[in-house]
Amino acid sequence: MKPVNEMKLVIPSRSANESYARVAVAAFAAQLDPTIEEINDIKTAVSEAVTNCIVHAYRDKIGTIFLTVKLFEEGKISIKIRDSGCGIENVEQAMEPLFTTAGEERAGLGFAVMESFMDKLTVRSKPGKGTTVSMEKRLKARPLRV
């Protein structure tokens, strides 16, 4: 299906950009007239994926994060967040709740949050090449105002 509208965002992996990325996606998604809860769900999921690029993919360096957001008829939003960082050896294990390769202050719940706050989550990764996280959410039926 062809999207009704689309936006791309390219940012360096600086932690100050975490809030910018989630707010930018939320502002774009506002065209679908989401509820406050839906907006919060989207912001939280985006924050998780972008933070993972910063904390894990580009652990000791600054790399580039690519976001693509598409809006479809009938209120579906798809969000793709890609990095060309270290990649994930075992995606299935990484997606298990509480699994983390980082220290004490990480809960290991980022993927669990994305999975539960969005309708669909797909993770593709190649060690040494990078990771792409794709998410979809269908918002409650409202007319699109594009």
């Binding site: 809030s19 939280t44 924050s47 004490e104 202050e105 990480r106 809960a107 719940l109 949050v113």
Partner: peptide, 16 residues
């Protein structure tokens, strides 16, 4: 006004 899983890490760390 907003919290992601970093906030969970924050709470669990203070719990410890």
């Amino acid at each position: 006004s907003f919290m992601d899983s970093s906030g969970i890490g924050l709470v669990m760390g203070r719990f410890r």
